[in-house]
């Protein structure tokens, strides 16, 4: 096997149908970039999920004068009610930790969180956020037991589960991720068809050469390798463009997402590199296999 001969054949093939090669490179680049973006979003969601899983709290808001819950009767929860609720919560097997947060503490925390938003602060005063118990669960999936425990309890306004809010948010991210992967799948189909066509055209252009090669007894590998590598190289170039797009999407999409949504876990460049390498490998393999299969019908013994 002479490398120079094979490389020369590849170069001729890629140059001869340049437009097909370019469209193939673009298709592969977009397909792989979308696939990679889908994977990046998935990685982000998974790591955020496990981060939040440990920190999810159930807030038990207690009655105060502005409560809309009729069982509160527009009065504050009494100290005795509070003590009973605290005792029951601490006695529950699913509860890991209970902290009491008074309305003053809640207001302080609110001021801190929204310090950059003076309009919101002006319209808020102490007491708008009622006294509450912050309950950390040993298993966030078993929140129902807390709800059941405190149902119709005197002094309890409402039980808010943070997990429900987060779940809704993760659902959106999941949707985003699947949308990216679905579009990637469609692009992959287009890429496969394009590879098949490009290689077929290439084989047709060089039917004189391949005919002679067959006749003088060149092995199938020798005849097919330039075509397969031609597809693989187009796949590789597409994969490299996809890598650039992926770095862009990490900076523009994921990092922006992290900042605006205050994700505490950042996606590391290591995992981004992993995704890029994976996408390039998929691109190259995809093109090589597609060329091989389309050649089997064309260059028969």
């Amino acid at each position: 096997m002479r490398a120079q001969f094979v490389l020369q054949e590849i170069w001729i093939g890629l140059r001869r149908n340049l437009t097909m090669t370019v469209s193939l490179v673009i298709t592969v680049a977009i397909a792989m970039a979308l696939l990679g973006t889908g994977l990046l979003v998935k990685l982000q969601v998974d790591s955020s999920k496990s981060y939040w899983h440990d920190r999810i709290e159930v807030s038990v808001f207690l009655c105060n004068k502005t409560s809309t819950n009729p069982s509160c009767n527009k009065t504050d929860a009494t100290d005795q009610q509070k003590a009973e609720i605290k005792r029951d919560l601490e006695g529950s097997p699913v509860v890991a930790q209970v902290t009491y947060e008074s309305k003053e503490q809640a207001f302080e925390r609110f001021k801190e969180t929204f310090s950059s938003n003076p309009g919101l602060l002006q319209g808020t005063k102490v007491g708008d956020i009622p006294d509450s118990f912050r309950v950390r669960l040993s298993d966030p999936e078993r929140v129902d037991e807390i709800t059941k425990l405190l149902a119709n309890r005197a002094g309890v306004d409402q039980v808010v589960n943070e997990k429900e809010i987060l779940d809704r948010f993760f659902k959106i991210l999941n949707g985003l991720q699947w949308a990216a992967i679905m579009i990637a799948a469609i692009q992959v189909i287009a890429a496969v068809l394009l590879v098949a066509n490009t290689v077929r055209l290439s084989a047709f252009n060089r039917r004189r050469e391949t005919g002679i090669m067959r006749l003088v007894g060149a092995s199938n590998l020798y005849i097919q390798l330039p075509f397969i590598l031609e597809g693989a190289i187009a796949g590789l170039i597409g994969g490299l463009f996809a890598a650039i797009l992926l770095v862009g999407s990490k900076i523009v999409l994921i990092d922006q997402l992290q900042e605006s949504l205050e994700f505490t876990s950042r996606l590391s460049w290591t995992s981004v590199t992993g995704v890029i390498v994976f996408s390039i490998c998929v691109g190259v393999l995809l093109c090589a296999v597609a060329s091989f299969l389309s050649l089997r019908r064309y260059l028969r013994i």
């Binding site: 004189r208 050469e209 002679i212 067959r214 003088v216 007894g217 060149a218 092995s219 199938n220």
Partner: peptide
């Protein structure tokens, strides 16, 4: 077998009416 056919063809030379040069 099919993969041995190239070896057979290496022992046979072929000439055609239309030359088939590159």
């Amino acid at each position: 077998s099919n993969w041995r056919v190239p070896h057979l063809r290496r022992r046979i030379g072929c000439v055609f009416q239309d030359f088939r040069l590159l």
